[in-house]
Amino acid sequence: MHVILVNGSPHPHGCTFTALETVAAALDEWGVTTEIFQVGTKPLSGCIACRKCAKLGRCVFDDRVNEFVDLAEKADGFVFGSPVHYAAAGGAMTCFMDRAFYSSSGAGRPVFRLKPAAAVASARRAGTTATLDQLNKYMTLAEMPIVSSRYWNMVHGNTPDEVRQDLEGMQIMRVLGRNMAWLLRCKEAALKAGIPMPEAEQKVVTNFIR
């Protein structure tokens, strides 16, 4: 079992990374392999709604998004982490999530369906719940079981050292990692027991104006 943790912060070893690193350590304890995928600092275009992904099988912009989606096909679970920028996920992370989820669904690639996932938000002070609401919406659209902890998945601090002093936040990250590992084990056991995954229905789209 393998989990990809996406760091949507421009800082490769900042506060968001510190939170994800803690989740990864808890997963590792349960024998789940992990990797932290850095969105990075290179410019990322937002989705331009060209819909060429349906024909190409990938986003028309060949950058970190396509690299991630290729890796995601073989992954078993995900944690998407973002810093809070103006009470929302960072701009690069928003572009990344828009294109990763839209291009894979538009191309008909079963990259995310029924794979456990969680969102993590990092902030100096506030805006975390709005950021979590934003990130969780991608997962619900992709039929992904959302993994919870014993509180909302957030940490507070202005530096990695301050985040580590957020003892409750660190505990939330550890519990999140263990809960995800347990859910992954349950899914594995169910498949071994012959319990099939639910059949995917063809998508129905209803427009309000006809």
Rank of each mutant, 00 (worst) to 15 (best):
E21D: 15
K187L: 15
E21M: 12
T131I: 07
G40C: 10
K74R: 13
F17P: 00
N7F: 06
M93E: 06
Q38I: 02
P198L: 08
V163Q: 00
K52M: 15
T33L: 05
F112W: 15
A72K: 04
P110G: 09
F61Q: 09
L71F: 04
T128D: 11
R64N: 07
E201P: 03
Q134S: 09
S104D: 07
P116S: 04
N7T: 10
D133N: 11
P116G: 04
R125Y: 13
V39I: 15
L191G: 08
R51G: 02
S9E: 02
F112K: 02
G108P: 01
C15H: 07
E199S: 14
A126P: 02
T18R: 06
S105L: 10
T18H: 08
S149P: 09
N179Q: 12
G14I: 10
G57E: 07
N153M: 00
D133Q: 10
G127R: 08
L114H: 14
D28H: 09
I195G: 03
A87I: 11
S103Y: 05
G46T: 12
H156P: 02
E168D: 12
I36F: 11
T206F: 12
I195N: 04
E35D: 15
T129D: 11
T34S: 10
N158D: 13
C95A: 15
L44K: 06
S103C: 13
V175I: 15
K52N: 12
L183S: 04
F80N: 00
N179V: 07
V147I: 15
C186Y: 06
V3P: 04
K192G: 06
I4W: 00
V65Y: 04
S122F: 01
G81R: 04
F80G: 01
A54F: 08
S105D: 09
A72N: 03
I4G: 00
I4R: 01
T41I: 15
L71V: 02
V3W: 00
Y138M: 03
A142D: 07
P10H: 04
R64D: 03
C186S: 12
G77F: 03
S105R: 11
A126G: 04
A193I: 03
L71T: 02
V163T: 01
S148G: 14
M93C: 12
G177N: 08
T131E: 01
V79Y: 02
I48C: 08
D161K: 15
R113D: 12
